[in-house]
């Protein structure tokens, strides 16, 4: 009986989705703005990666909001976890074996290299500041899991995060200062598809990468230290 009811419910949901999506034609652009990004994106921002040209070029201010949300989440997590500190259980964790310890220490710089590559080439290849930052944070997670005696230096991570955020805002304000919009692309755009191109986009993405990486590493640090 219950199975029958579940199947009936699924059928109703499937029918509803099919009916509601039937009228919508797929693959036909609804708005003209998508066409504009695809056709004029490289020309206007100098970034070959169209996603990056949208994320940092056309809606850079939103991206500033995004990293602010991430920052607020980090602070909130620290505050929430800090209240649990008194009645935390100290679990006995066996240290990882020597092979894992050595392997983690070997892999740590390689993962950092990959993350840095991804956010430096954000305007050329898929990926960017958020993705590269997440990869860098995963390197720190590996370090925490494999080498239990190693910790990130909290002051250094906070400083890197601060420098990242300040660079983003400073680049935006320079655009205002020379009489244009916030985050105006004031640097020369250069040849498309070269590393030094797209004006301020690589600078902003490196700042985002550093900020996201240190923030996520701080989240991991909080969760592992205080749980």
């Amino acid at each position: 009986m219950r199975k029958l009811f579940v199947i009936l419910l699924l059928l109703i949901i499937a029918g509803g989705i099919t009916l509601s999506l039937k009228e919508i034609p797929f693959g036909i652009p609804k708005t003209k703005i998508g066409d504009h990004f695809i056709n004029k994106g490289v020309e206007e921002t100098g970034s070959v990666n169209i996603v990056t040209s949208v994320v940092v070029g056309y809606r850079g201010f939103d991206t500033l909001g995004e990293i602010t949300v991430l920052f607020a989440a980090t602070i909130g997590l620290g505050a929430v976890i800090g209240t649990f500190r008194k009645n935390s259980v100290n679990r006995e964790v066996e240290a990882a074996s020597l092979i894992v310890y050595t392997g983690c220490r070997f892999l740590f710089p390689v993962i950092l290299l990959v993350g840095t590559y991804i956010f430096i080439h954000g305007h050329l290849t898929p990926g960017g500041g958020f993705q590269g930052g997440a990869i860098i944070a995963s390197a720190f997670l590996l370090m925490y899991l494999g080498c239990s005696n190693k910790r990130i230096k909290e002051n250094l991570s906070k400083t890197v995060e601060m420098i990242g955020g300040l660079t983003f805002i400073a680049v935006g304000i320079i655009g205002l200062a020379i009489g244009q919009d916030f985050l105006f692309n004031f640097l020369p755009k250069g040849e498309p598809a070269e590393l030094l191109s797209a004006g301020i986009i690589p600078i902003v993405y490196i700042a985002i990468g550093l900020k996201v990486g240190s923030e996520l590493a701080g989240i991991i640090d909080n969760l592992i230290q205080k749980s």
């Binding site: 990882a96 074996s97 092979i99 894992v100 392997g103 070997f106 892999l107 993962i111 990959v114």
Partner: peptide
């Protein structure tokens, strides 16, 4: 990367 990570993770 694969040469280091694959045996180490399997060992773990």
């Amino acid at each position: 990367f694969v040469l280091i990570s694959n045996p180490v993770s399997s060992h773990a």
